[in-house]
Design a protein around this nucleic acid. Structure first.
Lengths: 186, 186
DNA sequence: ACCTGAACACCGTTCAAGT
DNA sequence: ACCTGAACACCGTTCAAGT
């Protein structure tokens, strides 16, 4: 990449991080280009879709979550590992308001710039879930997509100002549902 | 209301029902006015905010849910009544894509045209929850807002094309979490 | 009373023209 | 190679002018 292009890319990403933090995932792209002091076409050149921009913003979080999952897969209690990773996943999705809808949609859209990362996140969660299920620490009747959906639902709750105060408590409620095997508690 | 105004109101509502069913709660108001064969100002005269239009669309559902709650409050098992109403609530919120976010936001916004109805829905759910809790059929550590949040989360899951196939199953997972008292199953 | 639609200030996206 | 910004087709919202 040419030096001036690199500079524009970095500047766009930094500004986008600030603006998306403030306005959410549906922030105005025009506004981002404007605040970055760059033509609108330049933004589109570097990030051809909104998903591409979000992917760049979330890159670090995705990598951290993948590393965290790798650690947890062989450490401590299977149930605790699963819940701990789920907590990190939800917290990271809540970093940018409204981003969870794109992350969920990306699962079934191979064209989305977020597709690969989101499929990888689902797989990482699924591995932790399977281990917990094998040990009898998690209910057996859910799969990786269910886990991803529950994580998404929790992130959505955290995104709603009227519900955010309950987000932590509801995390515990749902975590307990995941960790409870209904067949054995009846 | 003058006869011509009445006609416009009814026509707008009918068209809005069709368009919002098709496009979701963020459908273009301009498009609705256009398809209704009415000036844009006329739409704003009858429905000064998007929430006012949604409220009119949801009026019937709200009334039905209130009636259903009243019935269920004195019938059958407290746990079954709670879950049955919750199912109806979620199904009704899923009738119009994207409407659940407005319904949740309305809870903490007294200016919203949806405020009164949504507060009433939360109260109806809370009554069914309290009865179930009193009988020991529902976990004691959640309140009406938690229930409303869980219902919202389930409706959100149903709204996401990538997750909708799991919505029914996740309803059961969360319903079982509500009906399980963690203090007694440990 | 009620209706209309132009006007204004915004979008996302594309692409010809510039360097 | 890369950048710019006008152009196009849309929004939501308001309000002067009409009936």
């Amino acid at each position: 990449m040419r030096a001036d292009a690199r500079k524009n890319y970095d500047q766009l990403l930094a500004v986008a991080r600030a603006v998306v933090t403030e306005e959410g995932a549906d922030a105005s792209l025009r506004d981002i280009a404007r605040r970055a002091g760059v033509g609108l076409g330049t933004l589109y050149r570097h990030f051809p879709t909104r998903e591409a921009l979000l992917e760049a913003l979330l890159r670090t979080s995705f990598d951290e979550l993948a590393a965290k999952a790798a650690e947890l897969e062989t450490s401590g209690s299977a149930g605790d590992s699963l819940v701990s990773w789920l907590r990190d996943f939800v917290a990271s999705a809540e970093n940018y308001r409204g981003v969870i809808a794109s992350m969920v949609a990306a699962i079934s859209d191979p064209e989305s710039a977020l597709h690969a990362s989101c499929v990888a996140m689902r797989a990482a969660g699924a591995r932790l879930l399977t281990r917990a299920q094998t040990e009898g620490a998690a209910r057996a009747d859910i799969d990786g997509t269910d886990l991803y959906a529950l994580a998404g639902a929790l992130a959505w709750v955290g995104d709603q100002p009227a519900l955010a105060p309950r987000a932590d408590h509801l995390f515990d409620v749902i975590a307990s549902a995941i960790l409870t095997n209904p067949a054995t508690t009846r």
